[in-house]
Write a protein that binds this DNA or RNA. Structure first.
Lengths: 197, 197
DNA sequence: CATTATACGGAGGGTGCCTCCGTTTGCAAG
DNA sequence: CTTGCAAACGGAGGCACCCTCCGTATAATG
């Protein structure tokens, strides 16, 4: 009977409240920890508890499980992009790529569960909401790939997406264990060998 | 107060009842369908319903979610092994391997969700219960690999596990979509290129 | 048949998901 | 500093699923 029950972000009239902003930050922080340990199964109510917040608050900020995952993923991805852009203009593109990939594997190693949680939600359509970051990431990596191809070191029919997804694929497939990293890197390097011209 | 409540398989006195055997088969069949569609999240009660069986029955046959997954996985794996063993003695080992991997990818394509459901449970310790099948599988694939290495076509520091896990990894990473298969096969072939001596 | 080990169904207690709404609180206009 | 209200909060409650327990049904055996 009475429109405008829940004003969305677009048409709000005042500036956001301080407590709301703080809670959002605390929720993402809590989600990183809980999801990182428990994987995709982890309870959202546990996240709310850890953030000292009612479930209602969690669900207002993130209307469903996936929304929360995406918020976390966005932060992780930002790190990735920054690292990738830092590689621009490296002397040895192929080597730089390899280094970058290895660094990412190391990053993943510290967040096992999170990786699992995310890959469940990562469909094509989901990715559409990251166009901004995704574009920057692909631009940076493709730059490397093209430099490598131009210098004749790498084949020229490979794109950033191949590299990135394969890396995650290998991380994900290897079961956790003492030589997790060794195995992942070994296979990654084989793939990179396949990339040579 | 009264031992032997639930006689285990080892110490049973009569031969198993016919209805029990039928139900077990129906449950696995139902699980293949439901898990195949719904992925690891799918409801076990849905499986029971689909099999026209009470939940109690499901849980007696498979004490928990993982047990059911494993039963399904075992059946899938049997197919894999049979195919692999059929390749023995092929003229072109490297080509035979490639063919086998491609065939598996095609198999996976028809069972998307199932793959996801399984990879969640596939830790090292879980695999330990498949030693029999796993051994046969590795033996068959390694045979191919060694033949390839002997003929100088393939590098010699690669084992069956590398191949198999990488294949699953690539299948899993690629989001479902129209050119799912094309992408997976492309990356798989790059990996195979990396395998050359 | 009668006996009984074996298996079945589904109610029930526990937990997690998400929604709804009465209450609280920060912001800003007077 | 009040006051008014949009914005945000908390958590009860309804629903689905997980798994256990146990009274009832039934296939095997003699």
């Amino acid at each position: 009977m009475q429109g405008m029950r829940a004003p969305t972000v677009e048409n709000r009239q005042r500036k956001p409240r301080r407590d709301a902003l703080e809670n959002r930050v605390r929720l993402i922080e809590a989600a990183k920890e809980i999801l990182g340990r428990g994987g995709p199964e982890a309870s959202l109510e546990a996240v709310a508890r850890r953030a000292n917040v009612g479930v209602g608050t969690l669900y207002r900020h993130f209307p469903n499980r996936d929304a929360l995952f995406h918020a976390v993923y966005r932060q992780e991805m930002e790190q990735l992009v920054v690292r990738a852009e830092a590689l621009d203009g490296a002397a040895d593109p192929s080597g730089a790529l390899r280094q970058w990939l290895h660094a990412n594997v190391a990053l993943v190693e510290t967040k096992r569960g999170l990786l699992g949680a995310l890959s469940v939600v990562l469909t094509d359509e989901a990715k559409a909401s990251y166009v901004d970051l995704s574009t920057r990431l692909h631009r940076a990596v493709n730059l490397m790939l093209r430099q490598g191809a131009a210098s004749g070191a790498l084949r020229d029919d490979v794109v950033a997406e191949d590299l990135i997804e394969t890396m995650y694929a290998l991380c994900y497939a290897q079961p956790p264990g003492p030589d997790w990293r060794r195995q992942v890197l070994r296979r990654l390097d084989i793939f990179l060998d396949g990339l040579r011209a």
